[in-house]
Design a protein around this nucleic acid. Sequence first.
DNA 1: CCATTAACTGAACATTGTTTAGTATTAGCA
DNA 2: TGCTAATACTAAACAATGTTCAGTTAATGG
Lengths: 202, 202
Amino acid sequence: MPRRGDHSKEELKNLILDAAEALVAEHGAAGLSARAIAKQIGYAAGTIYLNFANLDEVILHVNARTLDRMYAAIEPAASGRAGPVTRLKRAARAYVEFARANPSLWRLCFEHRLPPGSDSPDWLDRRIEGLVSLIVEPVREVTQSTGRALETTAQTLFSGVHGICMLTLTNKLDVVGKQGTEQLTDALISNYIRGVTSAHSE
Amino acid sequence: MPRRGDHSKEELKNLILDAAEALVAEHGAAGLSARAIAKQIGYAAGTIYLNFANLDEVILHVNARTLDRMYAAIEPAASGRAGPVTRLKRAARAYVEFARANPSLWRLCFEHRLPPGSDSPDWLDRRIEGLVSLIVEPVREVTQSTGRALETTAQTLFSGVHGICMLTLTNKLDVVGKQGTEQLTDALISNYIRGVTSAHSE
DNA sequence: CCATTAACTGAACATTGTTTAGTATTAGCA
DNA sequence: TGCTAATACTAAACAATGTTCAGTTAATGG
């Protein structure tokens, strides 16, 4: 049934997402527009709306892809055979590295505002939880905690690294370079972990 | 020389910023438009461009105001006569509380993207540094550190609280309510500080 | 009272997201 | 093979956006 290039529904969706991703990566979030996507894939702008409800939905799917790539980038670091603290630090570095390599896509994940009233779909939120879950195991190993305390520690560390990443990448802190950021994430992890374990043995 | 309502240049600028602030606070960042501002102050849209180069500049000034209000909201908590750790926790709570009370304005401060190439002006960045500087004193008291180490700790704690605030306020974490967020910030501060001090006495 | 200057407007332009009437192509069936 | 129904797709339209600017109005200064 397709006419232009024999693209199945699924292929066309992926073409749209590919184009959207490339546009954001190259020209920032502002470079994303229905017409720009259409031009890049050789379709008319209206075609996008046959596959997605609106541009917000396109962005949400782009974000899902980005989060999946983030997961893949962090997973090896978090689950190596090194000690738990080392794995946590490596995971944080992988996170920062990914954000530095994909600044626009990374920011789109966390800065995209959808219209008031509606909030992000479950399949997206679950991907962020998936990222947090990556560090639960090393945290458990090193803190010997379980249940709610374990989850709290993992969430706190993740948020902390995320905040450091956010503020340093957007130059809102007086910190420059990769090692500047890593100094902060390393400090966060070592001190927090030491704090937890020393409270334990007290 | 003014014609409409005898507004001096400075008054008119403030009128514009007042209107912009109100629009963002009520209808979110998407509610901000040149025509909406103009309508609210009884001027034509073009008048805004006689006072600001473009809407981005208006937003930057709104953010400056918001950051000033944040400073005023946090300062008392950070500089009371309580112990340093208590002051840090109170400062974090004040930060979270402000963000919860002004979600759209708070997000605008940290999520606004200006066109690629240009970065935010010094007078704005300095206001964020001002926020960080609020916790330097209590951090110094409790960690006995100075210089670069002191600054690193302050930046790390600030970023950490910021990250927690960001992810919990935007519902990207499986954490709900004010006490949920405060549990994370409290954990961050107590454990991090304990980590620093216990490393010291080791 | 007139001329100059500045404030201000209204309309215009390009670009955005989104909708829709209409066209073209294919699939299924006779 | 040829007819019909369904679907993929486009082009054009709409409203709203940021921004500019020629022209108008009002106040100032001489």
